[in-house]
Design a protein around this nucleic acid. Structure first.
Lengths: 303, 303
DNA sequence: TCAAAAGTGTTGCATCTACACCCATGC
DNA sequence: GCATGGGTGTAGATGCAACACTTTTGA
């Protein structure tokens, strides 16, 4: 973001070189280097069809995946992403990938985590930084992919299957098994994650292992699971949910987004009080359904 | 952490190659690659001397820095760190650097953020992942550095200097100026950070610029500032503070750690109620000072 | 004796939780 | 009419902020 000013002008090192002289001499190719990529977790909310004229359509959290057309993991589904060019920052690479994949530019983007296991890509050593983008449901140009790659939205389910706690001498071990289910129009992908929290005299170690992975390429099941946990914790104390909403929305639609991310139901009255200060009502109503019309709200910038 | 099983056995790509055949052919050296490093933010808490026999020594948050013995930024202070080897994960590299620098192994370690600006290192393109380590005050082997590099602890101060808000058409711009002050035995290093939050129709953009940097190498002032913000927000809803404490501690010592990280004073009675469930009292007392003896507590594993 | 810190109690206010209840619509 | 969702009120529990107060020690 900012160019470093030369900070040690005139100072000479042990060989008597100034910084400028040193840099001319510097050979960056001495060490072997890993490849660096960005992986994009692009989320949006989509409605499921509903034939009952009274019932509201159910909202689902969706993620964009790309079907791999080349080895490795040929035919499996992977996160969109690609190599970081030498003349672009990580963030610029993330925005570029986002735009290539969806045509979107002005959306919420957040760096999630950097994955650096040695064998995570069978081709070569790849370190990849994952970014999470939240797009609202209006602008879902699903397959704006210019290359031949097939892109599709998958609804995301992430649930705790089983939990066990074992007490040790100076602490305990908490084992949690989560299931990730990604449902597309034709395919259903699954992964099972084992999260182990080892607490020992105040030292906490969290290990996330991918136990099974059906149809998902690389370690991307683990990355999606990590994103879900981040989404769940952030939705409670920030306003990220609004990035998934269109300009105007009903409070029930907003509540459904919260419920879909948290994986549990909320009480209507309490939810409305909780978000009251974050929304501003408009004069418009949604009237198409077989029940009382609902007021439309927008995000309240004042807070 | 886990080797990927070959997931597309037998499937052939457009050229008729199986995954095994494809990988034999794959040439990883086609693209130019950035260097990847880890930067370590090693924090601990140290007491300041106090001559008044009644008064308690003041606790300060400290960070370990290394004086650069080579260009660029020769003579400036930098975060410990180094290149990631091809056969070690990012986390393994972080633990290795931590051990080389401090001799510590079993401490709290957390990945913070990955910095990928193009010009952040004048030598070559360097992408670096920062890790935060919290060590308790007992085990501070300050300069276990085996090489010639000089290492030292600096107390950390991070304060909001100025804040202004400007309303725009569809949102607002919040500008905050923070000052980072690192005080060592002989030197005082400073940096000024400008954090700009641009809120626009629900899109939030956070930009952190390093405005001044006195005595701190690279963009490390910005990284330290980021770590301070992470520490501040996490201390309120997690138990990380305990990783900075020795096995046994008084509640006042614990409160001082909270105060030093938050940069503000807390009310004693309320603080004690807040941490009550996270600590377990022992039968031991601290009796050396000119006031009522204080009970020693330990971290409560039960919660 | 007394400064400094250890430690406890109280009160008011804000927030969360659970549940009950009435309102308005399209078919 | 009625199923469905829109929308509000209330009582009890819980949590937090601010302040006042008592206790104990070493020099």
């Amino acid at each position: 973001m900012k160019k470093q000013e030369s900070a040690s002008d005139g100072i000479r090192n042990k060989k008597g070189l100034t910084e400028a002289e040193f840099l001319v001499d510097y050979n960056p190719a001495r060490y072997e280097r890993p490849s660096v990529t960005v992986d994009m977790l692009i989320f949006t909310v989509k409605k499921r069809k509903e034939k009952n004229y009274r019932k509201l359509p159910e909202n689902m959290l969706n993620i964009l995946l790309i079907k791999r057309g080349e080895h490795p993991f040929l035919g499996k589904w992977a996160l969109p992403g690609g190599f970081v060019n030498m003349d672009e920052s990580l963030e610029e690479a993330a925005y570029r990938e986002l735009e290539e994949e969806t045509g979107l530019r002005d959306v919420y983007l957040e760096q999630l985590y950097t994955w650096g296991d040695v064998k995570r890509d069978p081709r070569t050593r790849v370190i990849s930084t994952s970014y999470m983008a939240l797009a609202d449901s209006r602008v879902l140009s699903p397959k704006a992919a210019d290359d031949a790659a097939e892109a599709a939205w998958f609804s995301v389910g992430y649930n705790l299957l089983k939990e066990s706690r074992e007490d040790t001498k100076d602490g305990y071990i908490l084992r949690q098994t989560y299931q990730l289910i990604l449902t597309g129009d034709e395919e259903k992908l699954t992964a099972v994650l084992e999260v182990t929290k080892t607490v020992n005299k105040g030292t906490v170690l969290i290990d996330r292992k991918l136990k099974e992975s059906e149809g998902i390429a690389f370690d991307h099941g683990r990355i999606i699971a990590y994103a879900m946990e981040r989404l769940r914790s952030k939705i409670m104390y920030t306003d990220i949910a609004f990035h998934l909403m269109p300009e105007l929305f009903t409070l029930t639609e907003l509540q459904q987004v919260y419920e879909v991310i948290l994986g549990k139901e909320l009480l209507k009255a309490n939810f409305r009080r909780k978000v009251a200060r974050m929304v501003a009502e408009t004069k418009e109503y949604r009237t198409d359904a077989g029940h009382r019309p609902s007021k439309l709200y927008r995000f309240n910038i004042e807070i």
